[in-house]
């Protein structure tokens, strides 16, 4: 069986990679893809904490799985809305690079 620590480390590495993507990319769609990676890292952590029980019965219910299902739902809604916003801005600015979205600068 897999130690919980290794799953947590996998989740941390995936979260860090996603964080690097969010901070370093210029294209808004690539930022959304990196956010999906971060959400998946959190999901892995939730499911691992619910599925791996350490003998004491500390995590004996399925709340982690349920929260992961809700996170997937919210992620689907978020991707739909965010890509609609990206398409809308692309219509006005002909670009999806976030450093060119300076409409509110004065």
């Amino acid at each position: 069986m897999v130690p919980l620590f290794y799953i947590n480390i996998l989740s941390v590495l995936l979260f860090g990679i996603g964080l690097y993507g969010v901070l370093s990319r210029r294209s808004a769609i690539l930022i959304i893809m990196a956010i999906e990676l971060m959400l998946n890292a959190v999901n892995i952590n939730f499911v691992a904490a619910a599925a791996v029980h350490e003998g004491s019965g500390m995590f004996s219910n399925f709340d982690g799985h349920i929260i992961a299902i809700f996170i997937i739902t919210i992620a689907a809604a978020e991707v739909g809305l965010a890509l609609a916003l990206v398409l809308r801005i692309f219509k006005n600015k002909s670009s999806v690079n976030v450093d060119e979205f300076d409409l509110m600068r004065w």
Partner: peptide, 26 residues
Amino acid sequence: AISVMVTLSAAYYKTYPIQPDMIQEA
């Protein structure tokens, strides 16, 4: 990103011992 990874890994290393755990089927 690397500093976040190192910090969180150290926190988990302090929290959990490395031992094979049982997996509960859902």
